[in-house]
Amino acid sequence: MRQADEPAGRGTRGGHALESRDEELARLRAVNNRLGKAGKEWEPERENLRRAAQYFAAEMKASPVAGTSSAPTAPTSA
């Protein structure tokens, strides 16, 4: 929102008249609606990435990382 001391949001900034509060609210609602639609468009992609992350997390738990061993080894004498 604009500065509270501007009467009903009708001041000037840089020589341009500011939009009224109703116009600003309408503009922000339109932006919010557009962002909501964009978020819904990406939902399938997020779901695929979530499933892939679950799959690879399960794979990491099932098999040890190369170069490590899950069983302790006996110390060697030198």
Rank of each mutant, 00 (worst) to 15 (best):
G67K: 06
R2H: 12
Q54L: 15
D22W: 01
G39V: 02
R13Y: 07
Q3L: 13
E19G: 10
D5K: 02
G9F: 06
T12V: 07
G67H: 09
A38K: 09
E24T: 03
L49F: 11
E47V: 12
S70F: 08
D5S: 10
R29A: 13
K37E: 15
G11S: 08
R51K: 15
S77R: 14
K37P: 00
T76K: 14
G9K: 14
K37F: 03
A74S: 11
T68M: 14
A4H: 05
R21F: 02
G67C: 09
S77P: 00
R50Y: 10
A57I: 00
G39M: 11
A8C: 07
A53R: 07
G15H: 05
A8Q: 10
A4W: 09
R29K: 15
K61C: 02
E6D: 12
D5Q: 11
M1A: 09
P75D: 08
S20P: 03
L18M: 15
E43R: 03
S77D: 09
E59V: 04
P72Q: 08
V65F: 10
S63F: 07
K37Q: 14
W42V: 10
E41Q: 12
A8K: 05
L35I: 00
V31N: 00
G36W: 06
A26P: 00
T73Q: 14
Q3S: 12
A26K: 02
A4T: 05
G36L: 11
E24G: 02
E23G: 05
P64H: 07
A78E: 12
R21L: 09
N32I: 01
T73H: 10
A66M: 09
K40T: 07
L25R: 09
D5V: 03
D22E: 15
